[in-house]
Write a protein that binds this DNA or RNA. Sequence first.
DNA 1: GGCGATGAGCAACAGCGTGTCGCATACGCG
DNA 2: CGCGTATGCGACACGCTGTTGCTCATCGCC
Lengths: 213, 213
Amino acid sequence: MTPRPERRSEQATDLRVIKTRKALRDAFISLVRERGLAAVTVLDVTERAMVNRATFYRHFRDKYDLMRFTIDSLVADLAWRPVPSDPSSFAFQDAVDHTEAILNRLAQHADLFQAVLALGGGPRLTLKTQRFVEEIIRHRLDVLGDLETPIPKEMIVPILSRWSTALWSWWLMEGMPYPPRDMAVYVVTLLRDGPLACLGLTGWAASEGAPPG
Amino acid sequence: MTPRPERRSEQATDLRVIKTRKALRDAFISLVRERGLAAVTVLDVTERAMVNRATFYRHFRDKYDLMRFTIDSLVADLAWRPVPSDPSSFAFQDAVDHTEAILNRLAQHADLFQAVLALGGGPRLTLKTQRFVEEIIRHRLDVLGDLETPIPKEMIVPILSRWSTALWSWWLMEGMPYPPRDMAVYVVTLLRDGPLACLGLTGWAASEGAPPG
DNA sequence: GGCGATGAGCAACAGCGTGTCGCATACGCG
DNA sequence: CGCGTATGCGACACGCTGTTGCTCATCGCC
């Protein structure tokens, strides 16, 4: 009747547990960065972490379970500033500040987050971003109500978060070619004006004859 | 000195070879869609493909080699319309048409491309898109020359292609909630105006005090 | 500080998938 | 038609997995 050993269920308070998991996580990260996820075995991880292999299985079901744990612990570490209680006052500069805070955190642990992305943590990062974006612009969606928008309103939040994380990961993978402050401005500008307008493509005909929004 | 057996090097002309590879590819796709890449073994693939396991290794180095082969054969299948000889005439409606053609092709093989994305083929798809986008707007970048743009010009192409593929994959993963024609308009509109403008967020202060472009 | 609880180390196990042979056979190509 | 080549087949050693029962060390708590 015991459903299962339920590894990694309870919050880790025991010092031994914390130490072991941290050792496994760190070893895992360094190995993935060296060889890629596919080439890393449980044996490798436990050897580098100097943890007995049996102990690994007392904490994680398998390699992928450790991967999820690792990604989550890294994504959770990102600095998501609290949203102002009155989001209607959320202005351009606020968005830049929020973005800069996130970029700073990314830069601080650049190697780790590159590993997260290499681990396939993009979707998980997007998911967290989505909740954040939703919190910020939900009131705006309510205000819009049944108003006509050029594109369906349901698209806005998922696209906004996907595009945001795409920009972040591009910046990381390119080796952070611009300082966080500049990049933050670019990000918000791109999201506000669109990449084509930033090319001076303002003369394009409007989407007349557009489908029913 | 023989560098390596070099599997899968020559073009497949022998009918037996073509048949075997197709069988392996199809079996691989169906299995990945069912269980995910990690849970698929070479043994599984060969059993479903009704191909001897030894034969598998005569064509592919391992599971990941087959994955690359599969992704490439699918991405290559996408309909990339030829770019007009005079790209300066490339207008809004042209972009919509191009996008619609791609979306139609995606829809036609929706299950396959969902598999591609599940296989981690996103980056490969982005790469191909990047070359396409570059071809279209390169002249525009030349025209711009040293002109000031709100964001660095080097960002435009990679971001444009990343955002495009992000939109496509979102559309696919959501089960294609809008017909290709409508979605194409949404895509180009989003890329032109930005998602925030589509929310009516036009009142945002311009990025004054922006960093040196 | 001591005690009961619990996590970690250790050694061994069966099981499975991998990657590679050599040889026989069937199929496609010219 | 017959030569060349791809496939089928059975076998092999190897490495990694996931689990078990035991002992010892360490932690949390009274």
